[in-house]
């Protein structure tokens, strides 16, 4: 007697659901391209220490600024280092730093936003004004301060980036919570006498998780750009660590006659950003969230 159309997704565990979402993402060309690009970068980053043909820091005056060839696929830079090696290892650095950075941003931004949205009132007012104040500080200046005080190791960069990119997530999480908070199931939980923590955990998080995850994916691509900008300016990871921003910065003066040393990291960086953006969009669509209706931060 009951409808048999809608009972299909009845017995599915979390893994199957995740697979389902991936399948939906890959069903559109843009999603498929995005996913493949990200997957390609991730695989390359994981394998890079094993497939890198040269030592990334081996300086050799004999091989300075060689054009791409069978021996050096992407040529060599001004210090004679293999650009291919440095590019694939640079991807590893960028992905590690920004992945953990976005994870931190997602956690603190998401939880704080949900909390503020739920409790409202004065606490919300104060916290949001503080967040606004931080948003008004140009992040790159603040990063410069942190880096010059604490150094440029990844242990400093990851939490610092995570902090600065989490501010925006606070607002998104708070707005998403506000959408849910007026619904009767929250009122019902309140009237039953559940604690705030229980309401956040059981009632709110399942309903705002998707929106926050999509936002986090977008932040990831912005963070990549931010991280590379820092390195480009010389405040990111320090040489000789292979890093795209650093590589572009070092090679840009020689662009007119040794374009190869700057092209590879640029292609790496922009393709990864495009890939993440496409994936985030497909992810949002697969979850049924229309990003175009999301309020700008």
């Amino acid at each position: 007697m009951e409808s048999n159309l809608i009972t299909e997704d009845k017995h599915k565990n979390k893994l199957e659901k995740a697979f389902e979402i991936l399948k939906t993402m890959a069903s559109k060309p843009s999603g498929l391209i995005g996913l493949s690009i990200v997957l390609f970068h991730v695989v390359l980053a994981l394998l890079s220490p094993y497939i890198a043909p040269y030592d990334y820091k081996a300086i050799s005056p004999n091989t300075m600024l060689l054009a791409p060839s069978a021996e050096h696929w992407f040529g060599t830079d001004s210090l004679g280092r293999d650009v291919f090696t440095r590019t694939i290892l640079g991807g590893r650095t960028a992905l590690t730093v920004t992945f953990f950075g976005s994870l931190i941003a997602l956690l603190w931004g998401g939880l704080l936003g949900i909390f503020c949205g739920l409790v409202g009132g004065k606490i919300d007012d104060v916290v949001m004004r503080v967040v606004d104040a931080f948003l008004s500080i140009p992040w790159i200046l603040a990063m410069l301060l942190i880096v010059s005080l604490l150094g440029t190791s990844t242990e400093v960069l990851i939490p610092a980036l995570g902090f600065f990119y989490g501010k925006g997530i606070v607002r998104v999480a708070r707005a998403a919570t506000h959408d849910v908070i007026a619904k009767d199931f929250i009122v019902s939980a309140r009237a039953r006498g559940h604690s705030n923590m229980s309401i956040i955990w059981n009632e709110i998080i399942p309903n705002v998780r998707d929106a926050i995850l999509v936002e986090g994916a977008m932040r990831w691509s912005w963070m990549l750009l931010g991280f590379s900008s820092l390195s480009f300016l010389g405040f990111g990871v320090s040489p000789p660590t292979p890093d795209w921003g650093l590589m572009i910065s070092n090679a840009r003066g020689l662009m007119s006659f040794a374009y190869w040393s700057v092209i590879a990291p640029i292609v790496g960086l922009s393709s990864l950003i495009i890939g993440i953006n496409l994936t985030a969009d497909a992810f949002a669509k697969a979850l049924g969230i229309d990003r175009s209706t999301k309020a700008p931060v």
């Binding site: 619904k183 009767d184 199931f185 009122v187 019902s188 009237a191 039953r192 006498g193 059981n202 009632e203 399942p206 309903n207």
Partner: peptide
């Protein structure tokens, strides 16, 4: 209010679409 009083008074809402958590 004490938990027993909270338990003793329950609410049913107008619209079950809103009063049931869609992700539960």
């Amino acid at each position: 209010r004490n938990p027993n009083d909270l338990r003793a008074i329950q609410l049913i809402f107008q619209n079950p679409d809103e009063s049931l958590n869609p992700n539960h």
